[in-house]
C-alpha cells in the first residue's frame, strides 16, 4: 500500500500538466527571457528598422524608407562609385580571416603540447591560456603600444634582423593590429581545438604509420579529420568577433586601417549618421547569424549543449 501511495505522489510531482509547466517556466525563465527580449531583441530590431531610414539635416532619423545606406556601404554613393566603404568591408573580413589563420597555426602545436602534458598539468596549461582572456582587453591592447613602439626592444630586435628601418616602430599599422588580435583571440581557438585534440583516437595514426604513411600523410589523413570539428568551431569563434573588433584597430591601427567597428563608431560619434551606422551594424549582425547558422547546420544531430 505504502509503495502505491508513494508512486502516486511521485507521479503527481513528476508529471506536470501542461498548464503547470507553463507556470513553472514563466516563473523561472520568464524574467530573464523578458529582459533579453526587451534589451537585446527589440534593440536589434530597432537597428534593422533604422538602417532603412534616412538621416535628416541635423542628424535626426526620419522617413522616407530607403536602401541608400546599404548602397553606400557597397560603394554606390551620390557621387558615383566610391571604393572607400567596400574596401573597409573587405579589409575587415581579410583581417578576421588572417587572425583566424594565424590563431589556427599557433594553436595546433600548443594544443598537442598541452595534450601530452601529465594529467594535472593539462588543466593548469589550459587555465594559463584562459586567464589573460579574462583580463581587460583595453589594457592588454594599449600594452602592445608600449611593446611595439619605436625604441622598444622588439623593434630593436627587428632592426637588427633588418626587418624594419631604424627609428620606425611596428605600431601603428596592420602588423600591430594583427598582433593585438591574435593575442586576444588565441584562447577562442585553443579551447575548442583542445577539446578535439583530447579526444583523438591515436590508434588511427598508428595504423596509418603501420601501413607506411609518412608524417604529413598521417597528419593529413588520420589526425586532421578528427580535429576538424574543433578547428571549425575555433575559426568561427575567432573570425566573427575579430571582424567587428573596435578597440584593437582603434588603438593599434592608424588612419589607413579603419575597420567595420571603427566605421560604425564614426557614425555614432562626430559623423552622426545613425541610419548608415545601423546598416553597417546589421551587416555585421548578418555575418554572425550566417556563421552561427553554418555552425548549427554542421552540428545538427550532434550532442546539443545548452549553448
Amino acid at each position: 500500500m505504502i509503495t502505491v501511495r508513494r508512486d502516486k505522489a511521485a507521479q503527481k510531482n513528476h508529471v506536470h500538466s501542461e498548464r503547470d509547466d507553463r507556470l513553472r517556466s514563466t516563473l523561472t525563465s520568464g524574467p530573464g527571457l523578458m529582459w533579453m527580449l526587451c534589451f537585446l531583441f527589440i534593440p536589434l530590431l530597432a537597428v534593422v528598422a533604422i538602417s532603412f531610414m534616412t538621416r535628416g539635416e541635423y542628424g535626426e532619423i526620419g522617413l522616407p524608407l530607403t536602401l541608400d545606406n546599404y548602397r553606400r556601404l557597397l560603394g554606390f554613393g551620390i557621387l558615383g562609385f566610391d571604393p572607400l566603404y567596400p574596401a573597409i568591408l573587405i579589409r575587415s573580413l581579410a583581417l578576421g580571416l588572417a587572425t583566424a589563420s594565424i590563431c589556427m597555426v599557433a594553436a595546433l602545436p600548443l594544443c598537442f603540447f598541452i595534450g601530452r602534458l601529465p594529467l594535472g598539468w593539462r588543466t593548469a596549461g589550459l587555465i594559463l591560456i584562459v586567464i589573460p582572456f579574462w583580463t581587460n582587453l583595453l589594457i592588454r591592447t594599449y600594452a602592445w603600444q608600449i611593446l611595439l613602439s619605436p625604441g622598444g626592444w622588439i623593434c630593436r630586435l627587428a632592426e637588427i634582423f633588418g626587418w624594419i628601418s631604424p627609428g620606425t616602430g611596428l605600431y601603428p599599422g596592420v602588423f600591430a593590429i594583427l598582433v593585438g588580435m591574435v593575442c586576444d583571440f588565441l584562447p577562442f581557438m585553443v579551447l575548442p581545438l583542445y577539446a578535439s585534440v583530447e579526444k583523438i583516437d591515436w590508434c588511427l595514426a598508428e595504423a596509418a604509420v603501420d601501413l607506411g604513411a609518412n608524417g604529413s600523410q598521417v597528419f593529413r589523413h588520420a589526425i586532421l579529420p578528427q580535429i576538424l570539428p574543433g578547428l571549425g568551431a575555433g575559426c568561427i569563434l575567432v573570425f566573427l568577433p575579430a571582424t567587428g573588433q573596435f578597440v584593437i584597430p582603434d588603438l593599434l591601427g592608424g588612419a589607413k586601417t579603419t575597420m567595420l567597428g571603427n566605421l560604425i563608431q564614426q557614425q555614432f560619434g562626430a559623423g552622426r549618421d545613425w541610419p548608415f551606422g545601423a546598416a553597417i551594424s546589421f551587416v555585421a549582425l548578418l555575418l554572425v547569424m550566417a556563421g552561427l547558422w553554418f555552425r548549427g547546420a554542421k552540428q545538427a544531430g550532434g550532442e546539443g549543449g545548452l549553448l
Binding site: 534589451f39 534593440p43 537597428v47 567595420l260 560604425i264 563608431q265 555585421a284 556563421g291 552561427l292
Partner: peptide, 12 residues
C-alpha cells in the same frame, strides 16, 4: 557571445 560588442552597444 558572438556579436561584435560595438553592434550591441549602438543597438542599445
Amino acid at each position: 557571445i558572438f556579436i561584435p560588442d560595438i553592434v550591441m552597444a549602438v543597438a542599445l
